[in-house]
Design a protein around this nucleic acid. Sequence first.
RNA 1: GGCCCGUUAGUCUAGUCGGUUAGGACGCUGGCCUCUCAAGCCGGUAUCACGGGUUCGAGUCCCGUACGGGCUACCA
Length: 492
Amino acid sequence: MSDNCPVRVRIAPSPTGDPHVGTAYIALFNMVFARRHEGRFILRIEDTDQARSTLQSEEAIYRSLKWLGLTWDEGPDVGGEYGPYRQSERKETYLEYARRLIESGHAYHCFCDDERVNRVRAEQRDLTGVGRYDGHCRAIALDEARARVAAGEQSVVRLKMPQDGETVLDCPLRGPIAYPNSQQNDQVLLKTDGFPTYHLANVVDDHLMEITHVIRAEEWIPSTPKHLVLYRSFGWRPPTFIHMPILRNRDRSKISKRRNPTSLDYYRRAGILPEAMVNFLANLGYSFGDDIEKFTLAEFIEGFAIERVSLGGPVFDLDKLDWLNGLYLRDLSHEDLLDRVMTEVLSRERLAKIVPLIRERIVRLEEFVPKTEYFFSGALDYDPALLVHKKLTREQVQGALAGAVERLDSVLDWRAETLEETLREFAAEVGIKAGPLFMGVRVAVTGRTASPGLFETMEVLGRPICLFRVRDALRKLTESNGKDTAPSDRPG
RNA sequence: GGCCCGUUAGUCUAGUCGGUUAGGACGCUGGCCUCUCAAGCCGGUAUCACGGGUUCGAGUCCCGUACGGGCUACCA
């Protein structure tokens, strides 16, 4: 590729929510690129969004990437010479660089409140098509601004975008992309809470960590000009930017958890082998051009050429994942397969959690397997009509389940008590009785109308599978809509 | 609305400098194998988004259109 300096790439996930397949996808390509060029692969945690970042999510990222066999050379957990690798621990650094920008006239304090900013943005949008801040506070003299800040007035720091000229992003895959500077917003760099936005933090860190290539998702293309302006303002040489396509749902929208399982935890729980997942991810947007689709991570690294990445947004096709997974499964020796089953499905640990729930509901040992089947399976097969409690309408159940998913999705502490509290609260809020709501959730989660205590069951089942099943129930309900009473016509 | 990216079958993709019966895979489907079902093997299915150019010749080059997607935050 470009020059002699050693390749250094990074993945910079923000620790919010479940570990995402998109994170794994970008991590994979970064890691493979680094290994191919004998460079370094860095994991940096972008937790500048204090409201949404959690340590739990951060740990899930490590766990999931390790599960996939992706490894990094530097990161918060393994250290390195360019640390700290967690942005919340670099706050002072960003403050310092923001200060430099202000002093050199490339940024300024802005005291406008939300109301004004929103109003101006809307006005600008109607007027020019580009909704951006009008630069009102640029006019404030630095001395005055400092005095106001010192006096405790709330402010943010904004980038002073050049008013004319253009910024060109030169992507090795897509060619040059030119943006007129006049279109760009005076982006906020430092928030009122003193934390940087992604824009400042990623530029400062990428520079300080000597990142040579930024391989990230396509959704970042439009903000790259701002980053380039930042590099220029600091007098730094920008890295090479390479934008990967984004993964899509079946309907071709950007992949989302509402339309497709996105949590790596789900795939693990669903019995996808990590080597199959990695291979599958590699096939999305990449091929060697030799008709060989099944290859190991090592082979991928050995033959990888970034120029061969294709740009069309690939649909995350579960059928093909399953096919590949089957191939890998059959490659395993009996012994290895048995090991996987014992650790991933029938682990003593999992069985130990099920036993207390089922002991009072069986009289013969032989009942254990048939009565606990749903603890070990993935998608469930049942009559969607079961989801609808007698006292509710189908629409009510649909609404209730949809609401319940949202609530459940935010439950990080996946324990029976928390779950019960959450769903009872939800039932009260939307004004439906707990019983009928719980029945819907029970059927969604177990496929049956009779089960051990709902919340204990959900706790044992685990978050990924429960979330998947409730969403799946919603889908079943929607798809079966209208055809429950009408006996279908027989053609011919 | 504005800006940007993308476009080979239902899906993932191959197709260097223009000349291919447009290749492979998933899916679906027919068959073989077989006590069944899988797996495996053999076969079938459907595509260059559209319209103009350039050219003897265009999936490949140019222009336009359409469609899909992304971004437009004190989220990343």
